[in-house]
Design a protein around this nucleic acid. Structure first.
Lengths: 185, 185
DNA sequence: ATGAAATGTCACATATTTGAGACATATTTC
DNA sequence: GAAATATGTCTCAAATATGTGACATTTCAT
């Protein structure tokens, strides 16, 4: 049961992902509601953006946590997290765009949201694999982290643009990420 | 010798890359000129964006063409093109953002700009490598193309954010791209 | 030092976007 | 079906962004 507020947020995520200053008229149109209605749900642009941020984060974190817990093998955990993020689609892409300006240590320092559990878990998995020399030890953790996000985003865009079928994008993403970090399965 | 027009374009590229609707006041400020001056050089927002597009494309194409011509070995050609793009930094990232909404076949169909030589050359290199089974043949060309762009962008951001040193980013990018497409050197 | 060119400051008209009241209409709930 | 709730349309004031003329100031070239 999709309600108006959810519709507006989804539309805003879509619009603001590429243009943080897109007009609220555009967002309303994308949501299929009037701008007057949009204003009833969200006090102003800032409120709308904050709401998008929070909701998309919650959604992504939930999915990534489930994925993390779905298997005991570290490789499978990472793989499932990659797939979960791709499944999130626009949500993930939106969150990634928001935090694109931050560097890795900033993100690590800011314990402002729940994704830190997801991120810590993910980081520990990668560190474990590097320690065991199961992946390329020359690549730094920040690099691998950012690459993970980029490959997911690439997969999401590939599906959205019609270049790649949904199932293929998952497999390509995993194949590419594996190879990129030198993972031997 | 950096002139005012160039300064404005560089500032616009920086601002518009993340927010296509950033105010011209912001762009002027970023350029270190008054908005009045910006208006003397550029008729309006559209004119400014078009100029950015054209200049960044020219710059990227030139660099990528030089890189393509700098070696005869196909692997070295690709590697040098990757490095050239990373070297372009903001220019490349800007161009990538402009065309992010397009899918691969659209880009191939649109013979509207000179980058088609660069792209054709690059595509032929990849096709050649797949034919010779020197890279993973299961990954599609559109996927590889988009991944190439993403890894470059990842490297550019990593440097900008301070996560990764400039030389490291080149090496990481090449290592990751190689692995991602299953290239055996 | 002088004149030309480039730029900045200021002001203002116009265009666009935002936020919200009033009322009509549509939808949902019981 | 009636009442409550949600939404749309319209309007308007306020805020913000844009484009440009006039003039002052700074910079550059000789």
């Amino acid at each position: 049961m999709i309600n108006t507020r959810t519709k507006i947020i989804a539309a805003a995520v879509k619009c603001f992902r590429n243009n943080p200053s897109d007009t609220l008229e555009k967002v309303a149109e994308e949501a299929g509601v009037s701008r007057r209605t949009l204003h009833r749900y969200f006090e102003n642009r800032e409120d709308l953006i904050e709401s998008c941020k929070n909701e998309m984060l919650v959604s992504c974190n939930k999915a990534m946590t489930l994925a993390y817990e779905s298997d005991s093998d570290p490789i499978k955990k990472i793989r499932n997290m990659l797939f979960a993020a791709i499944e999130q689609g626009a949500s993930y892409a939106f969150v990634k765009r928001i935090y694109e300006r931050s560097n890795f240590s900033d993100l690590e320092r800011k314990k402002e949201f729940e994704s830190d559990d997801v991120k810590s878990n993910w980081l520990n998995l990668i560190k474990e694999l590097q320690k065991a020399e199961r992946i390329n030890t020359e690549l730094t953790i920040p690099w691998i982290f950012n690459l993970f996000g980029s490959i997911i985003e690439t997969a999401i865009y590939a599906v959205e643009s019609g270049d790649v079928a949904k199932n293929d994008s998952r497999n390509f993403a995993w194949t590419s990420f594996k190879g990129a970090i030198g993972l031997k399965e």
